[in-house]
Nucleic acid binder design. Structure first.
Length: 508
RNA sequence: GGCCCGUUGGUCAAGCGGUUAAGACUCCGGCCUUUCACGCCGGCAACAGGGGUUCGAGUCCCCUACGGGUCACCA
């Protein structure tokens, strides 16, 4: 065993600062829960001026997905969760990638065997069968009998080290398993779940190194978290029951155990986790559905974490100030699209008008081809009334072409406007418009207000038919004035005439 | 089935032994208004159940129920 080699690995460890990592496996998409985990890890590090790193956990060859790492990197960048370290010091930052570190795991596994804390196992593969989708069918039936079931002793566990080392070196296929003690207890300290004590006899000899030479998640994680100097390990609650085994590994190496921060999953309903397979949206799906990255991040942060007060709108920068692990809840949280939508509309409204116009532009241009219509003006009336960007097309299609609407729309109970009155109003409005030369929001406003005054009717009595005639639908962004203004003089008059015609026909 | 974890309105949640049990979303009223929306005001709606401990329990303990996790050469 090369002592110098191990010393070199250890020498790279930076100490004394908070260091966290986001350690996804490259599945081809980023799910919402993953984003939340990344966010929390980022916040913990950055709150303390620490280091946040990205580590790709691609130790399952069978599940390799082309381009998956790029998606993760893009998402993180998109969300503003920039990681600041990779294996190439000084260069452009590529993430740490476990498949590039295979030698390291092998060396440490061998070291553990030498120390007697692990062993080579030459038994045939056993226990489960793989299905096409990567899930497995357990062959084992759980006993109905009460009490802890005794571990099946592995025949290789007590093989003399020297003997199995020779066999392994000679090329006999093997896995490396950890030697979990039969006696005593292991206590795991977790910042969210508190202290959990587990009897060692319930722990199995988990596999560290697979037959193909790749490490398991359980092993690579411990090695890397140590080697990369991770101080706060954040992960999902599915790993909570393995945590005692991780502690045993740290102990076997004589390494300091990091602080664990375990978070519960994000659910789709009371019984099921959010999952792509069930059709739940991934982070990218949400963006294409018209959600803003900031809104998604803000909403997701609040799933399972609360800052304690009444405020719930937080930018990433705000979160840096208020985030605290003590606010993380042990209970799972259900993802609610309706509330996300609310956050999104808040973010849209809070945006500077110019910025909104910029992001709304493609959605608007997709519908409005007419060059006489000002995209900016449409964006302006849209901003306060759109919950997500994908709402835009159906809200503004009437600008492009007048829908074939029903005259029932002219009936407005509140202002006691009916079809007859509407017709009179439209005729009056037409005349008033024809007399005028200017065509701005202000001039249109003045004309209509003055007209209502002269006719001695409520504003709504006049505005309602004008809006219906010019838009041809009941629900519109903006009122009559804005719509007329955007449509322009000629189109406005054309549509009012159509309205008069429609209403006149019915009276014959 | 064993072990571990959880459970406050439909949802997110505050609450750290004494509160009229916050707040937000949704929904429903009302006001404002140039429709819808926005905004403002108001309303509906919760401590899973049962035992303790205590002068006093959503808060502490136990049991039950329900839910989740785990028991892979997946992560």
């Amino acid at each position: 065993m090369n002592k110098q080699w191990f010393n070199n690995q250890e020498a790279k460890i930076p100490r004394g600062k908070v260091r966290t990592r986001f350690a996804p496996s490259p599945t081809g998409y980023m799910h919402v829960g993953g984003l939340r985990t990344a966010l929390y890890a980022y916040l913990i590090a950055k709150k303390d001026n620490g280091t946040f790193i990205l580590r790709i956990e691609d130790t399952d060859k069978a599940r390799f997905v082309e381009g998956a790492t790029e998606i993760i990197i893009k998402t993180l960048r998109d969300a503003g969760l920039n990681y600041d370290e990779g294996p190439d010091i000084g260069g452009p930052v590529a993430p740490y990638t476990q498949s590039e570190r295979l030698d390291i795991y092998k060396q440490y596994a061998a070291l553990l065997c030498e120390k007697g804390a692990a062993y080579y196992c030459f038994c045939e593969r056993q226990g489960d069968e793989r299905q096409g989708d990567g899930s497995s069918v357990l062959l084992h039936q759980w006993s109905k009998i009460d009490g802890p079931s005794p571990r099946d002793p592995d025949p290789c566990r007590d093989l003399p080290y020297a003997e199995s080392k020779i066999r392994a070196d000679a090329g006999v296929p093997f896995v490396v398993r950890m030697k979990a003690p039969y006696d005593g207890n292991t206590t795991v300290a977790d910042m969210v779940f508190g202290e959990i004590t587990t009897p060692n006899k319930t722990l199995d000899d988990m596999i560290l190194l697979k037959r193909d030479g790749y490490p398991t998640y359980n092993f690579a994680n411990v090695i890397d978290d140590h080697l990369m100097g991770i101080t706060h390990v954040m992960r999902g609650s599915e790993y909570l029951s393995s945590a005692p085994k991780y502690n045993l590994l740290y102990k076997a190496f004589g390494w300091e155990i990091p602080t664990y921060i375990t978070v519960s999953p994000v659910m789709r309903d009371a019984n099921n986790k959010l999952s792509k397979r069930h059709g739940d949206p991934t982070y990218d799906d949400l963006l294409t559905q018209g959600y803003l990255p900031e809104a998604v991040l803000n909403y997701v942060a609040l799933l399972g974490w609360s800052p304690g007060g009444e405020r719930e709108m937080f930018t990433l920068k705000d979160m840096l100030e208020v985030f605290d692990v003590s606010g993380i809840s042990k209970a799972p949280a259900i993802f609610d699209m309706v509330k996300l939508t609310h956050f999104n509309s808040e973010y849209i409204r809070a945006m500077p008008a110019k910025e909104f116009a910029k992001i709304a532009r493609p959605y608007i241009c997709n519908v409005i081809k007419n060059e006489n219509i000002s995209i900016e003006a449409v964006a302006t009336i849209l901003q306060a009334r759109c919950e997500k960007l994908t709402d835009i097309p159906e809200k503004i299609d009437f600008f492009e072409s007048l829908p074939n609407y029903d005259t029932e729309l002219y009936i407005h109970k509140k202002s006691k406007t009916d079809k007859m009155i509407s017709r009179d109003m439209l005729i009056a409005a037409k005349k008033a418009f024809e007399k005028n030369t200017e065509w701005t929001n202000e001039s249109i406003h003045d004309i209509l207000i003055e007209l209502a005054l002269n006719l001695e009717v409520k504003n709504a009595t006049l505005m309602w038919p004008v809006r219906i005639a010019t838009a041809g639908k009941a629900v519109t962004p903006g009122g009559a004035i804005e719509i007329c203004s955007i449509l322009g003089y000629n189109e406005t008059l054309r549509r009012i005439e159509i309205g008069i015609e429609k209403l006149s026909e019915e009276n014959r």
